[in-house]
Design a protein around this nucleic acid. Structure first.
Length: 223
DNA sequence: ATGACGATTTACT
DNA sequence: GTAAATCGTCATA
């Protein structure tokens, strides 16, 4: 089982806009092992290593919110520059967060699906608060899904469109210089998009191989 | 104005 | 394994 090492306690250099502007699959892979950081209003710092991502490839991608060039107030962040957040609300109760990739008017993004909690476990637990009488059994479930991590990080529509490169509320830090080697990346079809025809089968989900912090251990077809 | 639909999670059989 | 929760968004009228 491959556990990622904890990054140093002090803050790391940020990921750049150039990092995010690259090919979306490349970014989805390169984000694995990098740190998502949140500063709450009260100053609390939360962070987690990214262990699972999905690539959404724009107008051609039937599973993407920008399929067939669909553009609306909801998804306009995907049409903007790389390095901004696309946060959407779904199922009447959940938020999910993406990192926008490529150039402006090329509406692609990487969905962040799971994190390995690093800083602020206690605050995250309070934010998740599934049932105060029945606390979460362990930290592997804290951020093991796209909506769970948004809840734990207090990420909602108010943060949609935020610039992850310059923001002091939500940003990305470089926890590893080299991309995770391919042999340590599990690859499979994306989750929850079964009605998307042939795009449902494409290998656009990426995870740190063997990590206990991912949303679902099954479904991976290759490295 | 109305109805169908989620890039999900949780509880329950 | 299945089902319920719950509502913003968008297409249609």
């Amino acid at each position: 089982m491959v556990l990622l090492p904890d990054p140093p306690a002090e803050s790391l250099p940020r990921l750049t806009r150039s990092f995010c502007r690259r090919d979306t699959v490349t970014v989805a892979r390169a984000l694995l092992g990098q740190l998502l950081v949140r500063r709450l209003k009260d100053g609390t710092r939360l962070s987690g290593l990214i262990v699972e991502t999905e690539a959404y490839l724009g107008p051609d991608d039937r599973a993407a919110h920008t399929y067939n060039h669909h553009r609306s107030p909801r998804n306009q962040s995907m049409w903007g520059p790389a390095g901004h957040a696309y946060v959407y609300f779904t199922y009447g109760m959940h938020h999910c967060m993406n990192v926008v990739t490529r150039d402006e008017h090329c509406p692609q993004a990487v969905l962040i699906r799971a994190l390995q909690p690093i800083e602020g476990h206690q605050a995250m637990r309070l934010l998740r608060q599934p049932n105060p009488a029945k606390p979460l059994p362990n930290d592997t479930n804290l951020c093991s899904g796209p909506a769970k991590l948004c809840k734990a990080f207090a990420i909602a529509r108010a943060l949609d469109g935020i610039d992850l490169i310059t923001s002091d509320e939500l940003w990305l830090e470089r926890a590893r210089t080299r991309a995770l080697p391919n042999k340590n990346i599990a690859v499979g079809p994306r989750i929850g998009i079964q009605s998307s025809g042939d795009w449902a089968d494409k290998p656009l989900r990426f995870a740190v191989r063997g990590s206990p912090y991912i949303s679902r251990p099954s479904g991976f077809t290759k490295t």
